[in-house]
């Protein structure tokens, strides 16, 4: 039986979940009206009927499930730059025990998920950091620990310091402090975990693998190559 009135999906009656009546038998999806109700059209996704039908079952997207796994086993790259590295080590040691978050250090970028930029980034170190970032497999996250990695900090005026690691690689979480306490680093990781989960929910996961996330770097050698690309393309077209 069709619903009276217009067939506009916006005003169609919402699905009203009901308890599964054992006596009525195996109709998982029934409504009061018992008719065919147009569902899942319009701006709202189709409501999930399984939890209402089978109590005690949680369902979700596979992305959510993967994000849950990812966020609970973040492997950080063993990579200390300066003062903050000492507090980073402290966080991993017996007293603060980072392992309980599933966070363990790994000395190779090939298996690491998170890179903690723990300390001042100087211009000589900029290229190695970028190389390490590129060696890490997707998805990958970066935490800028301390004011030096965030903005240059006390060395803002110095001739050799990069004013924040976000001039080189994209950063997900910034941690204030000089150096941040271990608790602050833990908080950053919890923020990162919720970011990973929410990104999966909101469909942001694709952005993580895109090359657009890598900001262009003004390295002296690389700059002419970037500029030359658009100039060369029309030249080839005309020649062909």
């Amino acid at each position: 039986m069709a619903v009276e009135g217009n067939n506009d999906s916006q005003s169609s009656p919402r699905f009203v979940p009901q308890k599964w009546d054992r006596e009525k038998g195996g109709h998982f999806f029934h409504t009061d009206e018992g008719g065919d109700v147009s569902l899942g059209k319009g701006n709202h996704p189709a409501p999930n009927r399984i939890p209402s039908a089978v109590p005690g079952v949680i369902t979700g997207k596979l992305d959510d499930l993967i994000a849950m796994g990812r966020s609970n086993s973040l492997w950080t790259l063993t990579f200390g730059l300066a003062c903050c590295a000492i507090e980073m080590i402290s966080t991993h040691m017996a007293h603060h025990d980072f392992d309980r978050f599933g966070i363990v250090t790994w000395p190779s970028p090939r298996q690491a998920d998170v890179m903690i930029i723990a300390g001042t980034v100087v211009k000589k170190m900029a290229d190695p950091i970028r190389l390490l970032y590129e060696q890490m497999p997707d998805p990958k996250w970066v935490i800028a620990m301390g004011t030096c990695a965030t903005s240059g900090g006390p060395y803002y005026k110095s001739y050799s310091v990069v004013m924040g690691v976000d001039h080189i690689i994209p950063v997900d979480i910034y941690v204030p402090g000089c150096p941040p306490r271990p608790e602050a680093l833990m908080d950053a990781f919890m923020k990162l975990q919720s970011k990973i989960k929410s990104d999966a929910k909101n469909g942001q996961i694709d952005d993580l693998s895109g090359e657009q996330r890598i900001a262009p770097v003004a390295v002296a050698d690389a700059a002419p190559v970037i500029d030359a690309v658009p100039a060369e393309v029309p030249a080839e077209e005309t020649a062909g």
């Binding site: 730059l81 300066a82 300390g119 001042t120 100087v122 000589k124 170190m125 190695p128 060395y155 110095s158 001739y159 050799s160 310091v161």
Partner: peptide
């Protein structure tokens, strides 16, 4: 060396 030369 010099990967942490901050110009102190």
């Amino acid at each position: 060396i010099g990967y942490l030369h901050r110009g102190t």
